[in-house]
Measured scan of single mutants.
Amino acid sequence: MGFKLLSKLLVYLTASIMAIASPLAFSVDSSGEYPTVSEIPVGEVRLYQIADGVWSHIATQSFDGAVYPSNGLIVRDGDELLLIDTAWGAKNTAALLAEIEKQIGLPVTRAVSTHFHDDRVGGVDVLRAAGVATYASPSTRRLAEVEGNEIPTHSLEGLSSSGDAVRFGPVELFYPGAAHSTDNLIVYVPSASVLYGGCAIYELSRTSAGNVADADLAEWPTSIERIQQHYPEAQFVIPGHGLPGGLDLLKHTTNVVKAHTNRSVVE
């Protein structure tokens, strides 16, 4: 069995187990497998329904001669939608809004960016022009300005110390501490036991640490421990890039980060 097929099978099995364990909360999309990078042309966006009122959005972007996937989250909030992270750029984010209108038909009224990198804030200006209120932590807003990236308009308070959590509509926002970046936030959907790890969490097929220019490698494993301790009931975990899975993604990420750190020390 090929690795790609095995990865998709694991996603399907995880979703099936969740649907059985929580039949009222989960209505997993039966329309197909989780979209992969090879299936999404740059400039297009796919939506994948995880649970009743919960979707991931998947886009792709060219970077350094390669094409990478990027995940975000959409959560229903009454007759409105909360968006977590842009679709990595203005063109993708405009396509995301169009796809949401086509498939869901509810307005996106608020959006949260989970850290300051372009795959999370690139497209904020498109959201703002569409009347979406954009939010991020003060740290993310400051770092985005320093980096020359787009800056969300509103500040999220109460997320300055490791372990801080605040309720934001249908989700809980959690600051686990520094990891992929010093400002990275985690998003949890309690009604569906869905954990969105953003770039602080890796997919299972990833074996290298990737972009760690703004990471705190020493603190990252401790931050992941905080996530595990705060959300032990999480059933569906979405990484910032690639295929979702279960809580095993947290341990896998820790292993990859520690291996990278150990290699760096040896070198």
Score class of each variant (00 low, 15 high):
Met1Ser: 03
Gly2Asn: 15
Gly2Ser: 13
Phe3Tyr: 10
Phe3Asn: 14
Lys4Ile: 13
Leu5His: 15
Leu6Lys: 15
Ser7Met: 09
Leu9Asn: 15
Leu10Arg: 11
Leu10Cys: 14
Val11Ser: 10
Val11Gly: 07
Leu13Pro: 09
Leu13Gln: 11
Ser16Asn: 07
Ile17Pro: 04
Ile17Ser: 12
Met18Ser: 14
Ala19Tyr: 15
Ala19Asp: 15
Ala19Cys: 14
Ala21Asp: 15
Ala25Ile: 13
Phe26Lys: 15
Ser27Pro: 13
Val28Arg: 09
Val28Thr: 12
Val28Trp: 08
Asp29Asn: 10
Asp29Met: 10
Ser30Cys: 08
Ser31Glu: 09
Ser31Ala: 13
Gly32Asp: 10
Gly32Thr: 09
Glu33Gln: 11
Glu33Tyr: 09
Glu33Lys: 13
Thr36Asp: 15
Val37Trp: 14
Val37Thr: 14
Glu39Phe: 10
Ile40Met: 15
Ile40Pro: 09
Pro41Asp: 14
Gly43Leu: 04
Glu44Lys: 12
Tyr48Gly: 07
Gln49His: 13
Ile50Arg: 02
Asp52Glu: 13
Asp52Lys: 10
Gly53Val: 08
Val54Asn: 03
Trp55Gln: 01
Trp55Val: 02
His57Leu: 04
Ile58Pro: 00
Ile58Trp: 07
Ile58Leu: 09
Ala59Arg: 04
Ala59Ser: 15
Ser62Asp: 10
Phe63Ser: 10
Asp64Gly: 15
Asp64Ser: 14
Asp64Tyr: 14
Val67Arg: 15
Tyr68Lys: 06
Ser70Arg: 01
Asn71Gly: 02
Leu73Asn: 01
Val75Pro: 02
Val75Asp: 05
Arg76Met: 11
Arg76Leu: 12
Arg76Phe: 06
Asp77Gln: 05
Asp77Met: 05
Gly78Leu: 08
Gly78Tyr: 08
Leu81Asn: 01
Leu81Asp: 00
Leu82Cys: 03
Ile84Pro: 00
Asp85Arg: 00
Gly89Lys: 03
Gly89Pro: 04
Gly89Arg: 02
Ala90Glu: 13
Lys91Gly: 14
Lys91Arg: 15
Asn92Ala: 06
Thr93Cys: 02
Ala94Arg: 14
Ala94Phe: 13
Ala95Cys: 05
Ala95Pro: 03
Leu96Thr: 00
Leu97Phe: 03
Ile100Met: 06
Lys102Arg: 13
Ile104Gly: 00
Ile104Met: 05
Leu106Asp: 08
Pro107Phe: 06
Val108Pro: 09
Thr109Arg: 14
Thr109Cys: 06
Ala111Asn: 06
Val112Gly: 04
Ser113Thr: 06
Thr114Ala: 04
His117Gly: 00
His117Val: 00
Asp119Ile: 02
Asp119Arg: 01
Val121Leu: 06
Val121Ile: 09
Gly122Pro: 05
Val124Ile: 10
Asp125Ala: 09
Val126Trp: 08
Val126Gly: 04
Leu127Phe: 06
Ala129Leu: 10
Ala129Arg: 11
Ala133Gly: 09
Ala133Asn: 10
Thr134Gln: 00
Ala136Asn: 03
Ser137Ala: 07
Ser137Val: 02
Ser137Leu: 11
Pro138Arg: 09
Thr140Pro: 03
Thr140Gln: 03
Arg141Ile: 11
Arg141Asn: 07
Arg142Trp: 11
Arg142Ile: 12
Arg142His: 14
Leu143Ile: 07
Glu145Gly: 13
Glu145Gln: 13
Glu147Gln: 14
Glu147Phe: 15
Glu147Ile: 13
Gly148His: 10
Gly148Trp: 04
Asn149Lys: 15
Glu150Asn: 05
Glu150Tyr: 04
Thr153Lys: 10
Thr153Cys: 05
His154Asn: 09
Ser155Pro: 13
Gly158Thr: 06
Gly158Asn: 10
Gly158His: 11
Leu159Pro: 07
Ser161Met: 14
Ser161Ile: 13
Ser162Val: 11
Asp164Gln: 12
Ala165Arg: 14
Arg167Ile: 12
Arg167Leu: 11
Arg167Glu: 12
Phe168Trp: 09
Leu173Asn: 05
Gly177Lys: 02
Gly177His: 04
Ala178Leu: 05
Ala178Gln: 08
Ala178Pro: 14
Ala179Ser: 06
Ser181His: 00
Asp183Thr: 01
Asp183His: 05
Asp183Lys: 01
Ile186Val: 13
Val187Met: 05
Tyr188Ile: 02
Tyr188Asp: 03
Val189Asp: 04
Pro190Cys: 03
Ser191Ala: 12
Ala192Ser: 11
Ser193Asn: 12
Val194Cys: 00
Leu195Thr: 01
Leu195Ala: 00
Cys199His: 03
Tyr202Trp: 06
Leu204Asn: 10
Leu204Ala: 13
Ser205Cys: 04
Ser205Asn: 10
Arg206Gly: 08
Arg206Asn: 15
Thr207Asp: 15
Thr207Ser: 12
Ala209Cys: 04
Gly210Ile: 05
Gly210Cys: 05
Gly210Met: 05
Gly210Lys: 06
Asn211Phe: 07
Asn211Arg: 07
Val212Leu: 06
Ala213Pro: 12
Asp214Ile: 04
Asp214Glu: 07
Asp214Phe: 06
Asp214Pro: 06
Leu217Gly: 03
Leu217Ile: 11
Ala218Met: 11
Ala218Pro: 09
Ala218Cys: 06
Glu219Val: 07
Trp220Leu: 03
Thr222Ile: 11
Ile224Glu: 01
Arg226Lys: 08
Ile227Gly: 02
Ile227Lys: 01
Gln228Thr: 15
Gln228Pro: 07
Gln228Asp: 07
Gln228Cys: 07
Gln229Thr: 12
His230Phe: 13
His230Lys: 15
Tyr231Glu: 01
Tyr231Pro: 01
Tyr231His: 06
Pro232Asp: 07
Glu233Gly: 12
Glu233Cys: 05
Gln235Ser: 11
Gln235Lys: 10
Gln235Glu: 12
Phe236Asp: 06
Pro239Glu: 00
Pro239Gln: 03
Gly240Pro: 04
His241Cys: 00
His241Trp: 00
Gly242Phe: 04
Gly242Ser: 05
Leu243Met: 14
Leu243Ala: 15
Gly246Cys: 04
Gly246Asp: 13
Leu247Tyr: 15
Leu247Asn: 13
Leu247Gly: 09
Leu247Met: 13
Leu250Gln: 00
Lys251Asn: 12
Lys251Cys: 07
His252Gly: 01
His252Trp: 04
Thr253Gly: 00
Thr253Asp: 00
Val256Trp: 01
Val256His: 02
His260Gly: 12
His260Leu: 08
Arg263Gln: 15
Arg263Val: 14
Ser264Val: 12
Val265Ser: 12
Val266Phe: 15
Val266Tyr: 14
